[in-house]
Structures are given as structure tokens and as C-alpha cells.
């Protein structure tokens, strides 16, 4: 005889979220299985350390488990999950106190970095950006969010978000173009 959880992989997400809201561990496991890749990738773009990224992703899912009963609409789960992920990332950033003076730090790192080095990939390039700039760029390019959505999510003025994305894009273009040219030459 089949158990209810055997059908979860084929169930619509809203239904699984509804079950998870009632404390169904199997439904929650299915949600983790479905979303782990997306959240881990998001965290990996935010911090280039894969171990830390996975740890933060786990914290996101622990928060989901604790708070899922507060979610009013089951079909709003993906947006809610993203909000939680960003909140966990911001908490981590605040904890390490990197937001303070991060712009200056990133400028220094960028100046010291050799843009023609072969080891430069997207994550390493992202690492040279200040935390708020990186977060805005990641949400825009990785999550495909609009500037307005990002501003609302991270509670920053729209102008600041636009400026962060503009600056971040220019820096990434600069670094990655040098890397690409170097790769093409070799």
C-alpha cells in the first residue's frame, strides 16, 4: 500500500505547502528537495564559499520549518522563501558587520586584484563587490527580479538599488571582460 508521501513528488507545490503548514514532515522534506538547488545557488552567488553558502541555505530551510505556519497563501511560497533567504543572508552580513565601510573595502580589493588572472570566475568576480552591491546584482541577474522588487525586498531606496546594480554591472563587465580576453588569447 502506498503512503501519502509517495505521491508528493508529483503533487502541485501549493498542496505540498499546505501539508507542510500543518507540520507534515514528509511534505516539508519534499519542499526542501524541490527548492534546495535554487536556494543553494542563490547563496553561492552571494558568498563564494560553498560550505558557508550551504550552511546559510540550511538556516533558510530551518526558518521555513519554524515559520511556515504563518504563511497565509500557499501559492505565495516561492516569493516568501526568497524573502527568508535574503533575510538570512542580511542577518549573516550584519553579524560579520561587513556592511559598514564595505564599499571602501571592495574598492581596495578590486584595486589589488589582477583582473587578468585565469582563476577569475563569476563567483570570484562577485566577491570583489561590496555586500549590498553584490546582493542587488545577484537578485537582479540570478533571481530575475526587477529593481522595484529588489528595493521593496531589501528595504533600500529605488535609486540606491539602481545605482548598486549599475556599479556592480560595470565592475563585473570590467573584470570578466579582462578574464575573457585573457582566456581567448591563451
Amino acid at each position: 500500500m502506498h503512503k501519502a508521501q509517495d505521491y508528493y513528488p508529483n503533487c502541485p507545490e501549493a498542496l505540498i505547502v499546505s501539508f507542510a503548514r500543518t507540520g507534515d514532515r514528509s511534505a516539508f522534506t519534499e519542499l526542501v528537495r524541490r527548492w534546495q538547488s535554487s536556494i543553494r545557488n542563490l547563496m553561492r552567488r552571494c558568498c563564494s564559499d560553498t560550505t558557508l553558502a550551504d550552511d546559510l541555505a540550511q538556516q533558510v530551510f530551518l526558518q521555513v520549518w519554524l515559520k511556515i505556519h504563518t504563511l497565509k497563501q500557499a501559492n505565495a511560497f516561492d516569493a516568501w522563501l526568497k524573502r527568508l533567504a535574503v533575510s538570512v543572508w542580511l542577518q549573516h552580513v550584519r553579524k560579520k558587520d561587513a556592511l559598514r565601510g564595505a564599499d571602501e573595502l571592495a574598492e581596495v580589493e578590486l584595486a589589488q586584484h589582477d583582473p587578468t588572472s585565469m582563476g577569475m570566475d563569476l563567483d570570484q568576480a562577485l566577491e570583489t563587490l561590496a555586500d549590498p552591491v553584490r546582493l542587488c546584482v545577484v537578485l537582479s541577474y540570478h533571481e530575475g527580479m526587477s529593481h522595484t522588487e529588489i528595493a521593496k525586498l531589501i528595504e533600500l531606496p529605488l535609486g540606491t538599488v539602481k545605482s548598486h546594480i549599475n556599479r556592480g554591472t560595470q565592475r563585473l563587465q570590467q573584470i570578466l571582460a579582462a578574464y575573457r580576453d585573457n582566456a581567448e588569447e591563451s
Binding site: 516539508f28 534546495q36 538547488s37 545557488n41 553561492r44 563569476l122 563567483d123
Partner: peptide
């Protein structure tokens, strides 16, 4: 850069936590 990551170990770890 978006890769499909194997989730079995990760999911088991989350559930244990």
C-alpha cells in the same frame, strides 16, 4: 553558473537539524 545540485545529502542534513 546555475547548476542543479544533488539534494539528497543536503535534504537529510536539513531534516536532521
Amino acid at each position: 553558473a546555475q547548476r542543479e545540485l544533488d539534494g539528497e545529502a543536503f535534504t537529510a542534513h536539513v531534516m536532521a537539524r
